[in-house]
Design a protein around this nucleic acid. Structure first.
Lengths: 217, 217
DNA sequence: GGTAGTTTTAAACGTATGTTTAAAACACAC
DNA sequence: GTGTGTTTTAAACATACGTTTAAAACTACC
């Protein structure tokens, strides 16, 4: 077994990044929880930034790949006679299923992804955003293109905005899921999980996607 | 003129907090931009946390107050015969207008508010969330209660989730607005602003609010 | 004009961070 | 078994941060 060190670091970093964010977690807490020497991170990943990238790559690669496969499969054997609403629900459902499959092998991947997107869109110059789209943009572009097909009553600009409003639902829900699930359990005695939440969100996003546009925007 | 120091600190902190976040901005950059001695923050506000609270209080107090007034005014002279969709649009419009009024006097207030909510919901134990609801929860509870009235086909738990999905649209859009507006201008040669974005979002949120619920959730 | 209270200043403090270093430990082919 | 390349280790480094201190500067009142 070669270098369980790397895996132990990745596993520990994943948990910390997901629960406390990138800047808020130090290499020292990561290496301590991983039972690994502090210098190991810089030795194996070069820098903290390198570690963050490795952590995100580990699930972003499978996620985009999975999504790509699901979409092409769906496109090749798509049922006829569906209206836009149903098509949107299907597409969003595929995205949700990809997320679920990835989260099954990596419990914190979505939380990290949400943090990643949040920080990417919080810096207006957006180096991180550029890196993400260059690295993984292809699958998501394809996804957007399919969505676009079933939101025909919009200009490209209107679609751009609408898409990011939908993204907001997803990102906020996921990054707040721990808190929301806890509140839900305390306040309504209802024990739920992320999968149920995702299923809950799909029709909401579909409705939001189909909301009327305001004039010429 | 007594202590322009305090105001200069608040103004500078506001800009930095809005554009770079709370933890990412140091007291040194704030005091430098404010042309004020480093120790001034601790002298006038006690600590960095105190400064953050002062910065947020400066716009949260007017915002909640404004919202409260608008809501009670609306409730007392509400037009009859509106359906739920229209009522929701009205209520969300009032929230948007409150935001606009506050943002008019304080350009970065919404960006900071979005960051505040994001961090509040990102820590599952939620001390900040508790503080916010204790301090300013009244107005927002009232707002939620009015919203609830026009989303009758839901359980309380379903409403809880749906409300936070809507909140996600708002929070993500606002915290990403700088990036989104920049992309929009570059990609579609369309110069827009936050007000237009907010107006754009209202029907989307109203639609999302009325999306069908999944079974017994 | 002197004095008490407030504010500002420069400097230092203590701590935490990411990173580097150089020696030690290890693995494995020859 | 020796030697080479890789990995681990403990220690130190350099920097950045929030905070504190004590003296200086300022303000306002008698």
């Amino acid at each position: 077994m070669t270098s369980s060190t790397i895996d132990r670091i990745l596993d520990a970093a994943e948990v910390e990044f997901a629960t406390h964010g990138f800047v808020e977690t130090s290499l020292r807490t990561i290496t301590t929880k991983a039972k690994v020497n502090l210098a190991a991170v810089n030795y194996h990943f070069g820098s903290k930034k390198g570690l963050i990238q490795a952590v995100t790559d580990r699930f972003l690669a499978p996620l985009t790949q999975n999504l790509q496969i699901q979409l092409t499969k769906y496109e090749s054997s798509r049922p006829n006679g569906l209206n836009d609403e149903q098509e949107l629900q299907h597409l969003l459902g595929l995205l949700a299923r990809s997320c679920q499959q990835v989260v099954q092998q990596n419990q914190h991947s979505l939380a990290i992804l949400a943090r990643l997107i949040n920080t990417a869109y919080s810096q207006s110059q957006g180096h991180l955003r550029k890196h993400l789209t260059q690295q993984y943009g292809a699958s998501f572009m394809y996804f957007m293109k399919l969505l676009r097909k079933h939101m025909p009553a919009m200009t490209n600009e209107q679609f751009f905005w609408r898409f990011h409003y939908l993204l907001g639902v997803l990102v906020f829900s996921i990054s707040s899921s721990d808190a929301l699930l806890a509140i839900c359990e305390r306040e309504y005695k209802s024990v739920r999980n992320l999968d149920q939440m995702m299923a809950d969100i799909i029709p909401v996003m579909a409705s939001a996607a189909q909301a009327p546009t305001i004039g010429e925007i």
